[in-house]
Nucleic acid binder design. Structure first.
Lengths: 191, 191, 191, 191
DNA sequence: TATGAATGAGTCTTCATTCAT
DNA sequence: GATGAATGAAGACTCATTCAT
């Protein structure tokens, strides 16, 4: 492969990070070698030297973003472990996440990339699946999935409104979704 | 104005519809005059003759998609009017909407366009605001907003999983979100 | 397609002719849009406007060269018709052909293109097959093929020596090849 | 000098052989450092370390191919020495040569390189001149040259038809070309 | 001695936009 | 009114070559 020295690895990484930053800002579609090179402050040739195609760079950048989301998920996991699955605590954690614009836009970029190209879906679903898994320790699988779906909607909401739902609203919704549902609902729900 | 004749108006409309179809399929980023012309089966010149720039064409196409969403919203309104705000009925309607892949992708395209360019946000928010407004006739404003947020998450979920959540899951979530919340939640929710 | 006006057709043709000239000079491998544009004295964009790929332009240029060879073949046919298949007359005609450097190099370029890409072989074989067909009116099929093979060798010789074999040498060889062969040769020739 | 060690010499040779193989396969035009390095399984840097330019590498590779042709010529010489210049024996030898696709393509590559760059012509003419020289021991100079020209044509024929002329056809032609020509032909051939 | 790193030149290609007809 | 022609800008990608280590 290409990077074998420390300096090479560092430069490659800088390029990936620049690309990830651009994707978080503008989505992964307008990514160009030139924009990445300018943002990373490297010559244009460097972006083609370390990546055999723009697509390869794009995928690595998206993976980088997904890795960041994994860290975010780890924080969620810790917060919930401490609070014993309390919906209000989860709401606070979610609100903190939604308040980080770059993070939220990165998430949205991953989702859009996954929607466009099926091979990127596993990347896009890391957040969703991870959240479901974490929640499953504290609530039933149905509720876990419902909360994750709601969290995705809240992410879209935050992107479009440029600020997240307030914690109270999040807490109300999460509380409702995580509360064991009444048995009569079960009978009425169709398929 | 440019299109004065019936033929002109029809051709303009065909171009907008072709652009909207392309956007719903592939997003609004890769839209080009040539692709639109080919899809609409009109000469290349027609796409620049009726629209002074590609951006103008893109905006009109997005508006066209938003109009289609408005019709979808009208159906939701009718369905809910008959059922008196029953969450299960809403779940069935939502499921039907989420099962229309083209519709769902068009919705996603609008959201992504709104996330990218602030001037397109009103277009992207039509669906959200409309849904909130409709639901407000049947439930409180907080619940209405929570349901709309959840519906957005369900849309993202449907796009990424290529099929919607099942009606039972939707019904459970909507029932929970629309049920008057317990007073103690209110006290505990922070801001 | 693209060219629909007289001017368009003329320009397209000018580009093809420029490409053909370059191929005859330097072979078809180094053909670039830029070189063709400069030689045809048209803007770079024109070469990509009329041809959807460089390969398409290359193929049309090679076809153009093959068409020119067809005209050359027609002359050979006329010359032989007049002289009743006389080897010496054929030698004179062949010598005239081999003395046209551009023509000979064009022939070589066609052969090389045919050797590289199988789909261009029919183009490369037009000269060979045409010559065999013409000669078949005046001599047996074996001799016709042998003469065509020799003519190809003489073409390579002319390209590499920058001048053709002299008419006497050509006449001797053609006379020998076109003379009915002695029956004892037949017995001895293996498979 | 650069290659002083055994390892260096071996590596240099491996690079030349890889380049020669690539040229025989695809012609000498598309030769790149990267392709050679990959084919020789050496680092990219090695190809620029042992050769000061790509052109130098190309020339050495062509010389390598020419050396292989010299060996082929030596075989022809031996074969003819045994058979006393018998055309049928020569035909068999020629047929064997033409049946070796790699050899034939290498020959064609040399010819094409010679046609493109005058400084490579001596390389390209080694085969032709060598064949003439060998044949001159068994037949007159005119016939020797005619046979060499025919052999070149047969080489082109083999490349384009993917298989050589059959031995019988070769034998007929060679017999005719090597037979002392009738005196009346001499009188009629012009210049 | 050897080789990974580096980069600017050059290639094909797509395209928005302008313009002449 | 309508559209083919035109073209320069920009993008992805390949590569020979130079250099630092």
């Amino acid at each position: 492969m290409v990077e074998q020295t420390d300096r090479g690895r560092a430069r490659r990484r800088a390029i990936v990070e620049a690309a990830a930053a651009l994707i978080a800002e503008q989505g992964s579609v307008d990514l160009t070698h030139r924009r990445v090179a300018a943002h990373a402050q490297v010559p244009l040739g460097a972006t083609t030297y370390y990546f055999s195609s723009l697509e390869e760079l794009r995928v690595e950048a998206l993976q980088h973003l997904a890795d960041q989301l994994d860290e975010e998920l780890a924080e969620v996991r810790r917060a919930l472990a401490d609070s014993g699955g309390d919906p209000v605590a989860l709401a606070r954690t979610l609100h903190a996440y939604l308040s980080d614009r770059a993070q939220v836009r990165a998430d949205a970029a991953l989702y859009f990339a996954g929607a466009r190209s099926p091979e990127l879906r596993p990347l896009a679903l890391r957040w969703f699946d991870g959240l479901v898994e974490i929640l499953s320790a504290h609530t039933g699988p149905d509720a876990a999935r419902a909360v994750a779906v709601f969290a995705d909607g809240a992410t879209a909401h935050a992107v479009l409104h440029d600020e997240p739902l307030d914690t109270a609203a999040l807490a109300r919704a999460l509380t409702a979704l995580m509360r064991p549902h009444a048995p009569e609902d079960e009978k009425r729900g169709g398929g």
